[in-house]
Amino acid sequence: MNITSIDDVQTQLEKQTYIADRGLATAIYLALKLQRPLFLEGEAGVGKTEIAKVLAALAGRDLIRLQCYEGLDVSQAIYEWNYTRQMLHIRMAEAQGDRVDEGELFGRDFLLSRPLLHAIETSDDTPSVLLIDEVDRSDEEFEAFLLEMLSDFQVTIPEIGTIKAQTPPIVILTSNRTREVHDALKRRCLYYWIDYPTFEKELAIVQAKVPTAAADLSRQVTAFIQELRDEDLYKIPGIAETIDWVTALVALDQTELDENVIDETLGVVLKYQDDVVDVRGGKARDILMRAKAR
């Protein structure tokens, strides 16, 4: 990936239908130039994961993805020994009357790479792209595993030694902020908080993602969601919901937003029953009026 400036980042992302504002483009540009991981925080559905996919596409690489969860350990995230092969190897050696060498048994041939190691091994002339998704879902123990990987782009396996990436991979970490991730981890990264987009930006995203939608529909849905975000909701809809909603409405052959269709499809946007009950009917009508006046 040949990126020469922040403007260039913006243009390249746009080609992949990702609309990024200047701040995000700067953070991405620096992550690429300084070869540092990029830590993205923001509410659900603002396009954190999407960035990794787009960067992978730009780099012409497959995205290597690690979904975090509580209890995620070395054998799932970094490497695991191929026990079946090890057992067979021991038996073969036995049959031939050889002694099994421990160094051989715990060597590269018997190693299975998991996402982190895989990213390091495959990062050659073009860097690999690694997404460590929803770090906040993992536990503190796992964060400790990440430290070596993120500061030196290397992994140490006691039996083999240290494996270092030829070129530093592009690493994106995301967090929904369901808990504070440790500072030691964040310190190794560039940090960017992705906010909900402005009306203009969100409209541009919708138009780029769902080009088949009628102009009025995209505009009204975007305005409706923007108004909805000011309401006192348990879960505020993200951009992902806006795109889903427009897509759903296009599938229903809608060219405009009206009261009935809002009531029927509100579940695409609001994911908590309390919120649906609160908005459906009168409140939705008011919001629609404001949205159309926008």
Binding site: R22, G23, A27, R187, Y191, Y192
Partner: peptide
């Protein structure tokens, strides 16, 4: 501004 911010800030 964004260069400084992305390096000096790590909490919203």
């Amino acid at each position: 501004y964004y260069t400084l911010r992305s390096l000096c800030v790590h909490k919203r």
